[in-house]
Nucleic acid binder design. Structure first.
Lengths: 134, 134
DNA sequence: GCACTAAGAGAATCTTAGCGT
DNA sequence: ACGCTAAGATTCTCTTAGTGC
C-alpha cells in the first residue's frame, strides 16, 4: 500500500524520484526501492514524507482501509454520512473555512474513528485472566 | 516518543508486556525492546498496535507534536479553539454523540490539519528547476 | 535524463538463555 | 510473576556500479 501512495503523491506534484530522494537525503535507488516495495523507509523518513505531502502516516501505510469484518450496511452508512454536505457545513477552523483537501483529511480521520468504534463493540479489550497454568 | 506511548497505553489498559507480546505474536524481550527504545517494530506491528489501542499510527510516532517553527500566538490560537466546547458541540456521528476519547482523536487530527495548513503557507511545494548543471 | 537491478558492506532485528526485582 | 540484558544467527537496508528506455 505504501508504494502506491508514494508514487501517487509524487506524480501529483510532478516530482521525479530524484527530487524526493534529494529531499530525504538518500540516493535514487534507495527511494526507488520504496516505490517498488522492496524496502521500507524508517519512521523518521516516513514522517518526513507525510509532512512533505501534508498527509498522515496512517494514510501512507493505508490504515484507513475498510476492515475485513465490515458489513455492507456499515460501509453504506459511513459513505452516506461522509458524503452529506451538511456533515462539515459551517465547520470553520479558527475563522477560516476548510479546503477540500482538509475536508478529505478530516473525513479520513472520521472514517478511522468510525471503524474503531465498531471494532471496540466487537472486540472489547479484556485482560486474559485465565492462563494455561495447570 | 513511541516507547512512551506504548507504555502509557499499555498501563492504561492494565496489561503486562507479555500480554501485548502474545497479541503481537512475538516474544517478551522483543516487545520490551520497543518500550526501551532499543528496537522499532515494523509497519505491520505498528498498525496492529494502533488498532489494538484504537489510536492512529501518527499518535504512536508522536507526529502530532507542536512544530519547532510555531509561534506562541499560533499555539494559543489552536488551544483556544480546541478547548472551546462549542467546537464539537452538536457534532454527531451517524446519530450517536462522540465520546471523549473520540473527541480527543478528532482534536488530534484537527491539530495536524492546523499545523499542515500553516506549514503549507510557509513552505509551498515547488519543484527545484534550477539544478547545479553549470 | 529517468527509472530499475545486482552485489557487497553495514546495521538492525528476533529468539534463546540468563539475571534482578 | 514481571521486566531487563547478552550473545548468536537471521534478515533487512544503503551505497556504488551498471543496464534499458
Amino acid at each position: 500500500m505504501l508504494p502506491e501512495r508514494l508514487k501517487e503523491l509524487r506524480l501529483a506534484k510532478h516530482l521525479t524520484q530524484e527530487d524526493v530522494a534529494n529531499f530525504l537525503g538518500i540516493t535514487r535507488p534507495a527511494y526507488t526501492a520504496y516505490e517498488s516495495g522492496k524496502r521500507q523507509p524508517d519512521d523518521s523518513t516516513k514522517m518526513k514524507l507525510a509532512q512533505y505531502y501534508s498527509v498522515t502516516v496512517d494514510y501512507l501505510l493505508g490504515v484507513n482501509k475498510t476492515p475485513a469484518w465490515a458489513t455492507q450496511q456499515q460501509v453504506t452508512d459511513l459513505k452516506t454520512w461522509l458524503d452529506d454536505p451538511a456533515a462539515m457545513d459551517g465547520f470553520s477552523f479558527g475563522g477560516a473555512e476548510l479546503t477540500e483537501d482538509e475536508k478529505d483529511k478530516l473525513k479520513m480521520s472520521m472514517t478511522q474513528i468510525f471503524w474503531n468504534r465498531l471494532n471496540l463493540k466487537r472486540m472489547p479489550i479484556n485482560k486474559d485472566e485465565g492462563g494455561d497454568n495447570k
